[in-house]
Computed example of a mutant assay.
Amino acid sequence: MRFDPSEHETKNIYKLLSGSVVPRPIAWVSTLSDSGVHNLAPFSFFTVASRQPPMLCISIGPGVGARKGTVKDTLENIRTSKEFVINISSTPLGNEMQKTSENLASEVDEFEEAGLTPISSEKIRPMRVEEAPIHMECKLHQIVELGSDHLLIGEMVLYHIQEDYYMEEYKVNFEKLRPLGRLAASFSESRDFFSLPKEDLK
C-alpha cells in the first residue's frame, strides 16, 4: 500500500505518522503566562536536538476542538517568556498528565486542575511538577515554523532527578521510572529492557 500526502486529508496522514513513529516520549511542559498563570501540557512530538550545548525540541500544533484556530497557551507563553520546563512523567502519573491535555481556558491553572504540586525552578520562572521524577529547565533557543506546526528548540540549563531514580555514572533507572510513551491515540509503558543482538526476538 502507498499513501501520497497530497491525495489524503491531513488528519489521515497524521494517523499513519503517529502510529508509525512509536513509541514517542512525552514532554510534560510547564510554562508561565504574562499574567502569572501556570500552564502545564503534554506533547509527544519531542526529542533531544543537540548534545553540546544540551538542547531539546518539541513540536506544537495548532489549537484543536473548542480552541481550533487559536495558538496553544504553551506556544504563546514560550514566545513571550522564552522559558519552559520539560517534566518527564512516569506511568503512575498518567491520569494527571492526561488531565492537563484537556482544552482548558487560558486563565486556568493546570497544576490546580490536575491536583499537582508546583515547585520553583532555580534558573527560570516557570514551575516544575514536584511529583514528576525528572525536570529539565530550558531557555528558548529558536522557534521554527514548519507548516501548521512550530518546532521549539530549548537549551537545557539545569537538570533535576529524584535521587531514587538515579543510578551511578549518570544513568537513569528505567525500571523505577516506568517511562510513559505514546502509540497513536494510545499510551504505552516500557517494562521490558534488553540489549541487542538478542537470540529470542522472534
Rank of each mutant, 00 (worst) to 15 (best):
F3R: 12
D4N: 09
D4R: 11
D4I: 09
P5Q: 05
E7L: 11
E7A: 12
E9M: 12
T10I: 15
K11S: 15
K15L: 11
K15Y: 05
L16C: 07
G19L: 07
V22D: 12
R24L: 02
V29H: 05
T31I: 03
S35M: 03
V37F: 02
H38T: 09
F43Q: 04
F43P: 01
F45Y: 08
F46N: 07
F46M: 05
R51N: 13
Q52N: 13
P54A: 10
M55Q: 15
M55N: 10
G61N: 04
G61C: 04
P62W: 15
V64Q: 14
V64C: 13
V64W: 14
R67W: 11
R67N: 15
G69S: 09
T70E: 15
T70D: 11
V71W: 06
T74K: 08
L75T: 08
E76D: 12
R79D: 10
S81K: 11
V85T: 00
V85F: 03
V85S: 01
I86K: 00
N87A: 04
T91R: 12
L93S: 01
K99W: 04
K99D: 07
E107K: 07
E112C: 10
L116F: 00
P118I: 06
S120D: 12
S121F: 06
S121P: 11
K123W: 06
R125H: 09
R125Y: 07
P126C: 06
P126G: 01
P126M: 11
M127D: 10
V129P: 01
E130I: 02
A132D: 01
P133F: 01
M136K: 00
E137P: 07
L140S: 00
H141L: 05
Q142S: 15
Q142N: 15
V144R: 09
G147R: 06
S148L: 13
I153T: 08
I153N: 00
I153Y: 04
G154N: 02
L158S: 14
Y159C: 07
I161N: 07
I161W: 03
I161Q: 12
D164N: 13
Y166G: 11
E169A: 08
Y170N: 15
Y170D: 15
K171H: 14
K171E: 13
K171D: 14
N173A: 05
F174S: 14
E175Q: 12
K176D: 07
K176Q: 14
K176G: 03
R178F: 10
L180C: 02
L180W: 09
G181A: 13
G181V: 07
R182P: 04
R182A: 04
R182G: 00
S188I: 09
D192M: 13
F193D: 06
S195H: 14
L196D: 05
L196R: 04
P197E: 10
P197S: 15
K198R: 12
E199W: 13
E199G: 12
K202H: 10
K202Y: 14
